[in-house]
Design a binder for these strands. Sequence first.
DNA 1: AAGATAATTAGACATTTGTCTAATTATTTA
DNA 2: TAAATAATTAGACAAATGTCTAATTATCTT
Lengths: 85, 85
Amino acid sequence: MNNLFRALNDPTRRKILEILREKDFTAGEIADKFEMTKPSISHHLDLLKQAKLVTADKQGQFIYYSLNTTILDELLTWIFTLKQP
Amino acid sequence: MNNLFRALNDPTRRKILEILREKDFTAGEIADKFEMTKPSISHHLDLLKQAKLVTADKQGQFIYYSLNTTILDELLTWIFTLKQP
DNA sequence: AAGATAATTAGACATTTGTCTAATTATTTA
DNA sequence: TAAATAATTAGACAAATGTCTAATTATCTT
């Protein structure tokens, strides 16, 4: 859970997740959507990967990133438990 | 949302929320459940309050803290949107 | 009114985090 | 095979974070 909360605790990373909701993108395509250097985005992608919120699929020299929402079920359960009377 | 994610991104604060799920506690009672100084817990409670995850109710020299889960609805909506195909 | 108790605020300090530039690795293409 | 392209890794650095001790504020009790 620690990695998950850490990954979500940054607006850039949350935006990346929202972008990947539409479809898969390469690291470069994602970086193009931000006013930030590629290494910074690469680092954010790494944290998202550590949290298993995204998966990376290398195709030639490109790396496609996909959203993985199943890991969020853990978070949903935690929230629901907290909300339970 | 920033304050919310920030507040949740710490194991001590998440534990405090879980403790408050049972019933309201004073700051001192909460602090007693951790191996950490009172000022540190006070600081965590402040961040939780900033995120509106808890409310504080002063009764005499005691301050009772209560869980507020309604603020989590915002987070639930965000997660569900992300999960939506 | 003085001392005791509950809690916060202030300030210091080490660790973590987010960003950058420069360098490196891997792949494609001329 | 050399140059170009995509992406990451390495290392530096400022800002944010979590913890502590000491001091302060507010309330209660004798």
